[in-house]
Design a protein around this nucleic acid. Structure first.
Length: 420
DNA sequence: TCTGGGGTCCTAGGACCC
DNA sequence: TCTGGGGTCCTAGGACCC
């Protein structure tokens, strides 16, 4: 409460003290770094199957119009010579960790937003923020071989917009421009924002964009002038207040270097639609086991279990249930997930199944979900089994053991098997 | 060319309680 | 005599982000 973060936006000097650092084409850049023969070539990382999409595209690929979230088939059509790679997320996490380390050498106030971007609060640093931005770029380039853009501003969302404006532009002749560090001038934020499109605001996506557009709002300046009470009717109260503040360059969110995870989930899209509870249940067992292992690794457990089902026509439903106590056991989680799935008609065909756990708490103080899981006192013995499974995986790797019900596909199968 | 996977936050309605 | 109002929990869905 008493920290410096509340006074942002006014009178703290010439320069904004928030940095947003964003890696350029992160996954593709990591791949080009470890395989230099890929440098200068159009590279995409992502799923190559029937239903795959691009997760990251190099600037050479972007020059063809390829971008992330694009179906892989479309990417190949636009750029037949594109080099498609499956992705190595373990490696990306490692590289990300080292880059975050570089950022933390400038300030402890680092808030990672994802593997490839972070906010920094450098208000306590000795050097000017823009200079720090250039130093970061140099170090990330020299130590990891990856380019990045830095935005500098007084508040978070302006720093984020700044890094976007500092990025190079893809071009058939090679990436052009990209000043690397873009500072939003302090004291001139509103004038800077006014002519820009509302879509530049972090949090304005397609749905909000079309609602605003129907109200005649195209620029951030128009949004800033729009009466708040009317805006609330257009996009809802909370969203309206938030957007109205941002449009007026007000963003009180502090850089939060410590965060707690709120939910964990895993999902899987099938190459072809699946039509039976048996097959979906087997997949739920695998996904539940994976989620539960991550929960235990993080030392948390959760009370609310959610199953997500996406049908062949892409319509998506969720079914959730809150247990009396929290779970971190794959078997208990799978059982709850399968019960939820039983109430869903899967005859139309399912393209994706997922399982998630929320309402997380520290597993040290958790209460075992003894009764409402249907497990009775046996939940306690599953705890012992999970610990043994974690030990085996720690020694022999995550593939050393997997849930038996995934292989047996028998309705009540809960044994454990050693693959192969 | 049909659209991945892992998250966060918000809304809205119903149940239930006081 | 229709019957108030608030608070909290739970469930389902949607928007958005990378």
């Amino acid at each position: 409460m008493a920290m410096s973060n509340s006074t942002r936006g006014g009178g703290r000097g010439r320069s904004g003290a928030i940095l947003h650092v964003d890696m350029d084409a992160f996954f593709a850049s990591v791949e080009q770094g470890r395989r230099p023969e890929l440098k200068g070539l159009p590279v995409a990382v992502g799923g190559q199957g029937r239903r795959g999409v691009v997760a990251s595209a190099s600037y050479e690929a972007r020059a063809y119009g390829v971008h992330s979230a694009m179906p892989s088939g479309r990417a190949r059509q636009l750029c037949p010579e594109i080099v498609f790679l499956p992705g190595d997320h373990e490696l990306y996490s490692e590289v990300s960790g080292r880059i975050m380390g570089i950022l933390r050498s400038f300030t402890p106030l680092v808030e990672p937003l994802s593997v490839d971007e972070a906010f920094l609060d450098v208000s306590g640093a000795h050097r000017p923020p823009v200079e720090i931005g250039h130093l970061i770029r140099r170090q990330v380039r020299s130590q990891e071989g990856i380019g990045c853009a830095v935005g500098v501003a007084a508040v978070k969302f302006l720093a984020k917009l700044g890094s976007k404006l500092a990025k190079p532009q893809p071009d058939p002749a090679g990436p052009v421009g990209g000043i690397g560090v873009f500072e939003v001038p302090v004291g001139r934020e509103r004038a800077f924002l006014a002519p820009r499109p509302v879509g530049d605001i972090w949090g304005v996506g397609p749905a909000t964009l079309s609602r605003l557009s129907r109200s005649g709002i195209a620029t951030i300046g128009e949004l800033a002038e729009f009466p708040l009470e009317r805006l609330e009717k257009v996009v809802g109260q909370a969203h309206a207040r938030h957007l109205h503040s941002l449009a007026n360059a007000v963003d009180p969110r502090p850089v939060a270097s410590e965060s707690t995870v709120k939910s964990m989930s895993r999902e899987e899209t099938f190459a072809r639609d699946v039509y039976t509870h048996e097959a979906l249940g087997a997949e739920l067992a695998v996904l539940s086991d994976s989620v539960a292992a991550r929960l235990r690794e993080a030392g948390v457990a959760g009370r609310t279990v959610t199953v997500k089902v996406r049908f062949g026509d892409f319509s998506t439903i969720t079914r959730s249930h809150t247990l009396a106590g929290s779970v971190d056991s794959g078997v208990v989680l799978a059982r709850a997930a399968k019960r939820l799935l039983q109430a869903v008609d899967v005859a139309p065909g399912v393209r994706l199944i997922g399982v998630g756990v929320s309402d997380l708490e520290d597993s040290g103080q958790r209460q075992l979900a003894l009764d409402l899981t249907g497990d009775g006192a046996r939940a306690h013995s599953w705890h012992e089994v999970d610990r043994a499974v974690d030990l085996i995986r720690g020694k022999f790797g995550s593939g050393a053991i997997r849930p038996g019900s995934a292989a047996d596909s028998g309705p009540g199968a809960t044994g454990w098997i050693r693959p192969g």
